[in-house]
Design a protein around this nucleic acid. Structure first.
Lengths: 236, 236
DNA sequence: AATAATTATTGTTAATTTGACAATAATTAT
DNA sequence: ATAATTATTGTCAAATTAACAATAATTATT
């Protein structure tokens, strides 16, 4: 057992699963652990819950400390409490799901390159895996603690919620100017399946435009081949 | 600050929201707190998480210790971590949702009458309230700690899941012999709205009978006026 | 015994939603 | 100019939903 933790009490950690959509795939932010336990393994960012902070604010400040990002969508994911999930002693983890547009995350990663790496989540025949510079199985030994289980839980949560909530919108680079194609690529990345363009447009507009949560802007998309797309604005 | 808790650490509690459906209404199991803090208030059953148990098994053994009920459906609800949720010090609560058929709960309550009371959840113009011998508002001072918030979270969880999962079946007196009307009354109690008999039957059978999760039994309902109902069996 | 009342079950029909595709429009690349 | 590309609109049958109506099997009442 590790020396830095008192052994006769339960320690509470807050871990973040920071998710983005890059290149048509979900991606999770991980950092390589420099020391034992699990030295060299990839881990979700986290730290012990301060005595005078709620998990909610602790997650918020941990996020701010890691990335200069404000107002990212965040929700409590699950609390992991297996007795032997941490070899140092009894540590439970309150995991939070954080959604960040790739374009905002991208800039941050180059600055702390050494500690951060970003991997793509694939849905490889029900066996989710992380690939990047290396390939890492979610239930393999290269992920620290039970972080593979946390990630799987987060993926399921996102997949379950994207069709009937607005979580997908939080991956948009700008909620003030996005194309329906951009939103569709987010849905496809999260669900891991292609969707019909026409039907997707219809269901999104039926759900959000008629209720006033989405409206067309004057602008159209500049770059790219083909007919330029109308840009929309999302109003929560 | 209370003396029984060390002040320089975070304590972890496991609380149970034991829900049933009685008389067409949801009901939550509460016990009156005998001592401070919140003496005399109604509270969800709970205790501190033992060092050597996961929250999952702690919830299970706490349940068994309170009620002689085996195999009740249970899921982690949410972890409540507000800094000042407990006046004794820093206590976070991992709340679990437990679903029990009223007929099984009924017998247990008489035996520990002093400590347990069962209240009905009403949906009174968006202001949920508990009524029974007394009337208690969910956000009033008669509920201990943040237990009103926990209950509200549990109600929302149930309402959100009942239409697309099988949680409703766990309120059935017997999953081996139930009528569709009995199941419908559970749905109506959880959702707080009446449903069309014919359409309810159709949607349930379409979802569960065609997939083999529900099948007709040879039996029919004995008691009651009117045409006796066919009894079904639920196979998870 | 006959009739009413009650509850379960089945049936009907229009409206809406969904799924799969085709057609058209506006742009860039050749 | 023409092809290729992408966005947008349109179509149409199938499936689902919502709101009711009708029938069936039982108990309660006269």
């Amino acid at each position: 057992m590790h020396k830095t933790l008192a052994s006769a009490q339960i320690h509470v950690a807050v871990d973040l699963m920071i998710v983005t959509v890059r290149d048509g795939k979900m991606a999770v932010l991980l950092s390589r652990r420099p020391q034992a336990p699990c030295a060299g393994c990839w881990a979700l960012p986290g730290h012990l819950l301060p005595l005078e902070e709620s998990a909610e604010t602790a997650a918020e400040s941990l996020l701010r400390e890691m990335l200069p990002i404000d107002g990212a969508y965040r929700e409590q994911l699950f609390t992991f409490t297996d007795v032997s999930r941490d070899p140092r002693g009894r540590v439970i983890s309150i995991a939070y799901l954080v959604l960040v547009p790739w374009q905002r995350l991208e800039g941050c990663l180059t600055r702390e390159e050494v500690k951060l790496a970003c991997f793509t989540v694939c849905d490889d025949a029900k066996q989710s895996a992380l690939v990047g510079p290396e390939t890492i199985l979610l239930d393999g030994p290269q992920l620290a603690f039970d972080h593979g289980q946390i990630i799987r839980t987060g993926i399921r949560r996102l997949q379950g919620k994207i069709s009937y909530t607005d979580v997908g919108f939080h991956f948009l680079q700008s909620t003030d100017a996005f194309s329906l194609r951009e939103l569709q690529m987010i849905f496809e990345a999260v669900l891991g399946e292609e969707m019909d363009k026409s039907n997707f447009r219809r269901s999104i507009l039926a759900r959000y435009e008629t209720t006033g949560h989405i409206s067309q802007t004057e602008d159209i998309q500049k770059s790219g081949r083909g007919r330029p797309a109308v840009l929309y604005r999302y109003i929560p």
